Amino acid sequence: MNISPFHVWAIVRFLPDMQRVVVNRFRRRSDAEECLRVLRRAATGRDYTLLYYPPGEEATFMVRKEYNKLVRDRIPEILTSQQVKFGVEPMTQTQYCQALRQKLIEEAQEAAEAGEDNLITELADLWEVIDATLAAYGIQRNQVLACQMQRRIERGAFSRKLRLLWTED
């Protein structure tokens, strides 16, 4: 693509290790926003954002990425060791419980999309969030296991690998 001084709007895709790649540049913000909407619909698992990003500033331009989500306790230490600037703040108990529920969804989605080589890691992450949720709500693991057994007796497990195709009312 020919990049002129007028292509100042860029769609950027974030990669691991704080890397980013410019996907496309645009003269008009409206064009960039429309392309971004299409990209987000087509590639839901990818992280794209729109930036004012003039040519020649790639080396010095710093990107602030907003997260506003629960992270593990050692993340600030890891970011500091990588010389990454960041901001954190403690949550109230109510905010923490709500963030844990959001994290359950996030980790379950990652486990559902994981390949076989990464499934154990994603399940371990999910289990960590489940343990934190149990602790936050004062629930004992044996209470959950007892409830699981009761539901297994009432509704069965998944050992028969059944798929429900249809019902009639």
Rank of each mutant, 00 (worst) to 15 (best):
R27Y: 03
R40K: 14
A135R: 14
L104S: 02
R155M: 11
F61W: 07
Q143E: 15
L104A: 02
R27G: 07
K103H: 06
L70D: 06
D131P: 03
F26L: 02
P76R: 04
G115Q: 07
M62I: 07
R46D: 06
A59T: 05
L51K: 06
K85Q: 04
K65S: 08
K69S: 09
N118R: 12
R46Q: 10
S159E: 09
R151K: 15
N24L: 00
D47V: 00
G45R: 10
V144D: 03
T60C: 06
T94K: 14
G87F: 13
Q109S: 11
R29W: 06
V8K: 13
Q82M: 11
Q95V: 06
G87R: 14
V38Y: 08
D131F: 09
A112L: 10
R46I: 02
R163C: 10
Q150T: 11
L165D: 05
R37T: 10
V38C: 07
I105K: 14
D169P: 14
E57W: 12
D125Q: 08
M18D: 12
S30L: 00
A114L: 08
F158T: 12
E33K: 09
E107D: 05
Y53W: 09
E128F: 04
E116H: 09
A111H: 04
Y53H: 06
C97R: 10
I153R: 15
L119G: 04
R29C: 09
Y48P: 03
P55V: 01
L15K: 13
R20C: 08
R13E: 13
R163T: 13
V12L: 10
T94P: 00
A132E: 13
T44Y: 05
E34M: 09
R13V: 09
A157V: 03
E107C: 02
R160S: 08
D117K: 14
A43W: 08
Y52L: 12
M62L: 06
R72C: 03
L100I: 01
V23T: 11
V22H: 02
P5I: 07
A112E: 08
R28A: 09
L119F: 14
E89D: 05
M18N: 13
T167S: 11
L134K: 14
Q19A: 13
E89F: 03
V12G: 04
Y137F: 15
A108K: 14
Y96M: 02
Q140P: 02
D17P: 03
E110K: 15
L79P: 04
N118S: 15
K161E: 12
M1Q: 11
L36G: 06
L145S: 08
E110R: 08
T121D: 13
R37M: 10
F86E: 02
D169E: 10
A157R: 11
L119E: 04
Y67H: 15
Q102A: 07
R40Q: 15
L123K: 06
A114G: 03
A43Y: 11
Q82W: 01
K85S: 07
M18E: 08
N2I: 13
R41P: 01
C147I: 13
A10L: 04
A99E: 01
R163G: 00
Q93P: 03
N142C: 13
I11V: 11
V129Q: 04
P55I: 02
T60Q: 07
G56S: 04
G87H: 12
V63N: 01
Y53N: 00
N68W: 14
L134Y: 12
I78S: 05
E154W: 07
